[in-house]
Write a protein that binds this DNA or RNA. Sequence first.
DNA 1: CCTATGCGTAACAACATTAGTTACAGAAAA
DNA 2: TTTTCTGTAACTAATGTTGTTACGCATAGG
Lengths: 140, 140
Amino acid sequence: MKNSSRYTVAIHVLTLLAYCGSEPVTSEFIAGSVNTNPVVIRRLLANLRAAKLVSSQGGPGGGWQLLKAAKQITLREVLAAVDGGSIFPMHSSDPNPRCPVGRAIQVVLEGHFKSAQLALEKDLQRTTIAALVESVKSTS
Amino acid sequence: MKNSSRYTVAIHVLTLLAYCGSEPVTSEFIAGSVNTNPVVIRRLLANLRAAKLVSSQGGPGGGWQLLKAAKQITLREVLAAVDGGSIFPMHSSDPNPRCPVGRAIQVVLEGHFKSAQLALEKDLQRTTIAALVESVKSTS
DNA sequence: CCTATGCGTAACAACATTAGTTACAGAAAA
DNA sequence: TTTTCTGTAACTAATGTTGTTACGCATAGG
């Protein structure tokens, strides 16, 4: 995941929101659970809001809430929300087009990479935020 | 993939070695195909050698060769060779153990992450370097 | 209308990772 | 012995990630 913890933190936050029920939760409170800065949380949640997973409310009593039922949110959509593109980065500078392998390798790999990523996503789709809440509760 | 092109380049290099047959190929030649510096290639190939995928030979006429038949090398082993650990990084600093969610989330996620990564690897296992060589040759 | 609260975002710093480069020691073939 | 390679350390530059401060703006509640 791009060597970043954004995906893990996003799942953590959504699980926390589901765990807290329907009450709005502030970014400061969330940051306390994740152990980071509220701004980091707000930046991440802005992505999840763009994906229609959460909503935000300003002012006193405001905060963040799930926009979909926890049972309807899968780890697959969370991944798509925080890390849009491909799991496998291509060459940083394009390979040599005068080499037969260099010329073709990216096109050839693209299909295999997409297939592998699809397999990954299919597996992630099996898990919902609601399931994680249950697991968290039973991990007493 | 850690936001690095190492995996893609590794596949490129192995495909090139297979494409070139049994002749040793120098890191300079490989770098010409990948469009990078020979030292970058040697560093990467050092990993693949540690995984027993290639061998190196110094001196004139030396270079790099496959140590296994291209048909026996799958994209799964290549991934393991260049990027040992987990696809999904956990929190950069540990979550708050005084929060029920923060306390449990990592343990809960670990299983789901491993399952997803296994699905990914199972798919990558279906493709061999030999198959890539064929695809490259037919992409004329 | 005022105030406190909380989001939205820009700007910046600190740090880690990636990629590229130079340099040089050492092994091996001819 | 010379040439051709690998093996690696050291350094730079570019980029990405994370954390932090600061401040504008909207809103709820008196």
